[in-house]
Design a protein around this nucleic acid. Structure first.
Lengths: 136, 136
DNA sequence: GTAAGCCCTGTACCTAGGTATAGAGTCAAG
DNA sequence: CTTGACTCTATACCTAGGTACAGGGCTTAC
């Protein structure tokens, strides 16, 4: 009752069947065994693992980083501190992305504020900004 | 003196030569003419246009959106209001991305704070979060 | 025993924004 | 008149994260 076919896993995890095979190729997931005919057999743990992957992706981890996390987890020498360190690196990463987007946001806002929304196009301050006449 | 070869444009705009041909294929840029031998001839305006593209990219516009902006600009019926509207749509887009990253940031921070950084791995609150036992 | 509905592998395709390579033609200097 | 630097097109390759399809093999119910 704990042995699932690939389509059952896909359905339970809410994921495309092809994606499961893709994760297997990427080394993120493996069937616990195969039938004589070569059919993949998964345990319900695989469903958890896919959910883990999806949550971590949602938090901005790449598949490669997630794979690292999974292997860290399996490694007997890994400590909570290791996992915490990865998480803190990812926090710094996300903070960096936010700062970048905020700089973009500021520039766009300034451009839109400078523009009255009327007047001839050739005097459009937004396009002038993009032309680099006064914008860094 | 206003007619440049592709490699001169590439050098002046600080961009890869192949990228210029790529932009041409994408309809973002075109040589003003060709020599008899088929060599592209650019005007120095192309250098400005590439800078425009690079600035707009830096502000989070995709090449497709930039192409739209360029065509808007050429269209005689376009007004400042049209350009302003695009810019405001992009502002909303950037704000959305910032909100998403901030939600990620909050979750990651909470996970890291819950984790003392010591203790056995099997009790790691970060991994528990990712396992979905208490985390949305 | 056969048809539907699974499953397998391998390969190609997709977006986005390029970069690289192959094979051929052109141009200018010595 | 040849050599090296430049250009052309076409095609392949790259990351990231998948998705789709072709051609075949199981399995199960009728």
């Amino acid at each position: 009752m704990d042995s699932l076919t690939i389509s059952e896993v896909a359905k339970q995890a809410g994921i495309n069947l092809q994606t499961i095979r893709y994760y297997e190729r990427q080394g993120l997931l493996a069937p616990s065994s195969r039938t004589e005919a070569g059919y993949r057999i998964f345990s319900s743990e695989s469903v958890w693992r896919i959910r883990f992957i999806k949550r971590a992706q949602g938090l901005g981890f790449s598949l490669k980083e997630i794979k690292d996390l999974l292997f860290l987890r399996i490694d007997a020498h890994t400590t909570q501190a290791d996992i915490r360190k990865r998480t803190q690196a990812k926090i710094a990463d996300v903070e960096q992305k936010i700062r970048h987007l905020q700089a973009i946001h500021t520039s766009l806002l300034r451009m839109a504020q400078d523009c009255s929304g009327c007047g001839p196009l050739k005097n459009c301050p937004i396009l002038e900004s993009l032309d680099g006449k006064e914008f860094v």
